[in-house]
Simulated assay, not measured.
Amino acid sequence: MRKVIVILVFCLGLVSFSQNDQRFDQANAMYNDGKYAEAIEQYEAILESGVHSAELYFNLGNANYKLNNIAPSVYYYEKALLLNPNDDDIKNNLAYAQNMTIDAIDNVPQVGFARIINNVVNTFAADTWAKMAIAGIIVFVLLFLMYHFAQATSRKRLAFIISVVSLFFGCFAVAMAFQKESLDKKDNPAIVFAQESRVKSEANKISEEVFRLHEGTKVQVLESYEDWKKIQLSDKSTGWIPAEDIKIIKSF
């Protein structure tokens, strides 16, 4: 019975994959024919089936950009970039979409030692740092064994020095992996979807308005309270925005 269920699930998966593949081709054909709204419907139907890919989000961004849908185009380009951060086409199209936004917000760069540390941490993903740490520890163990069993003094000295360096590198990579993971958890970007949103000083409608944001603007979500999200802009300004006015980029 269990084998029958497994085979049935596998067959259903193949059917679903085939249907999504056909929908994707149909959506691409509609896009090429200038039927952007129809293409969006097909792309979104694929998303609803649970399929997520950089190519799918990229095409959704393109179709929405053609219709001057500012927030959706920025949103989908950002999601595509999240899945494929090294794609130049996504970066270029995202820049075009961002040029349609109204809000001009200054970017306050980090300075000093914090900037140097963050640049080093962001050099690799957390998993890459972890793999480098494991490699460093393995090299340390092997060279330490070589040091222990080597007869020649020169070899023992060389093995000891390199093993110590490997140990320090492994510990450094572990620290970088934890720091990168911490930064990734804090990174919670979102896109404003409301045509105009009034950002408040507190999480209620009667509090003071601190500034207004418009569709397509990217914000960082710091915390949540009931139907409100505390956000931060690139210029370090903060405030509370209705949760319904934004969409989280990392939600799939």
Rank of each mutant, 00 (worst) to 15 (best):
P72D: 08
A54E: 12
V74A: 12
K91Q: 11
L47P: 04
N92K: 15
P85H: 04
D25W: 04
D87F: 06
Y75R: 11
F58C: 07
Q22Y: 08
F24Y: 13
A63H: 08
Q22I: 15
K91L: 08
A45Q: 10
Y36E: 00
L83Y: 05
N62Q: 13
Y36R: 01
L47I: 12
M30E: 05
F24T: 01
A63I: 08
V51F: 15
Y43V: 03
A80F: 10
E38F: 01
D25G: 01
A29S: 14
M30T: 00
Q22C: 07
Q26V: 08
A95L: 07
A39T: 02
Y31H: 05
Y65I: 03
I46N: 03
Q22L: 14
I90G: 00
Y57F: 15
E41H: 05
S49H: 06
D33R: 00
H52A: 14
D25F: 06
A63L: 10
G61Y: 09
Y57S: 13
E38D: 15
I40A: 04
P85G: 05
A45C: 01
A71Q: 13
N93G: 00
D87Y: 07
N93H: 03
L81F: 08
I46W: 02
N32T: 09
A63E: 08
D25T: 06
N64R: 07
R23P: 00
E38Q: 12
A71F: 11
A63K: 09
N92P: 00
P85Q: 03
E78I: 00
A71P: 12
I70Y: 11
D87L: 05
L67V: 07
F24V: 00
N92V: 05
N62Y: 09
N62L: 13
S18W: 12
R23H: 05
L94D: 03
D21L: 04
N28V: 01
Y76C: 11
L82R: 15
